[in-house]
């Protein structure tokens, strides 16, 4: 008699197991969707294997200075930001104001990589919207873009003075993104140098 009631009790409980599992699934899905909705999770984002590694070597023709080259060797010894863009990319238009503001702010130089683009269109873009870049490279073949692991322009990388990739931002960069993601890293990267000089 006693065994019979305990068996039916566990039977009643196990009937709820699928319901509980379903509820857990629903909660996981809801949390994920809320994260996506509030931009805390980007499902397109692939973690860059470049972070903490030396910046990929590049040596490309300049977009706007005939005969000049833009290369990582020419930039060594100082921190810089690499921004991969193209005139075919609507999100690049969206972040252009932010880039101009960063350039005006003057904390760090912006290096543009114009990816798979028409040079004339790109030059007109910079003339009309303003040029935030200290140097702009023309990467028609996409060699540098592939070396940087770029897959969806715009993408923005922070490179330290000793040539290490510190951060990558995927998609249009807002001023808030810049303040939150890039500025603290630049401050942190600058500190050890200040400390060693003391």
């Amino acid at each position: 008699m006693t065994t019979e009631t305990s068996q039916s009790g566990s039977g009643r409980f196990s009937a709820f197991v699928p319901v509980l599992l379903f509820a857990v699934l629903l909660i996981v899905f809801a949390i994920t969707l809320i994260k996506i909705g509030s931009n805390r999770l980007d499902i397109r984002e692939i973690k860059s294997p470049l972070i903490g590694k030396p910046v990929p070597a590049f040596d490309l023709p300049s977009l706007n200075q005939p005969g000049a080259r833009v290369s990582n060797a020419g930039l060594s010894g100082r921190a810089y930001v690499v921004n991969v863009w193209g005139t075919w990319c609507p999100e690049c238009r969206a972040e252009h104001e932010t880039l101009l503001r960063i350039a005006k702010d003057g904390q760090v130089s912006l290096i543009g990589i114009d990816w798979s683009d028409d040079a004339q269109l790109a030059q007109r873009w910079l003339q009309q919207l303003g040029n935030p870049y200290e140097q702009v490279a023309s990467d028609v073949e996409g060699q540098a873009a592939v070396d940087f692991g770029v897959y969806g322009a715009p993408e923005t990388f922070l490179v330290s003075a000793d040539g290490v990739v510190l951060h990558k931002h995927l998609g249009a960069l807002s001023w808030e993104d810049w303040q939150k993601e890039f500025v603290p890293l630049m401050v942190a990267a600058a500190k050890p140098v200040a400390g060693s000089s003391l």
Partner: peptide
Amino acid sequence: AGIASNLRVQ
């Protein structure tokens, strides 16, 4: 996509 074409070239 542009990147797929870049990767095929590589």
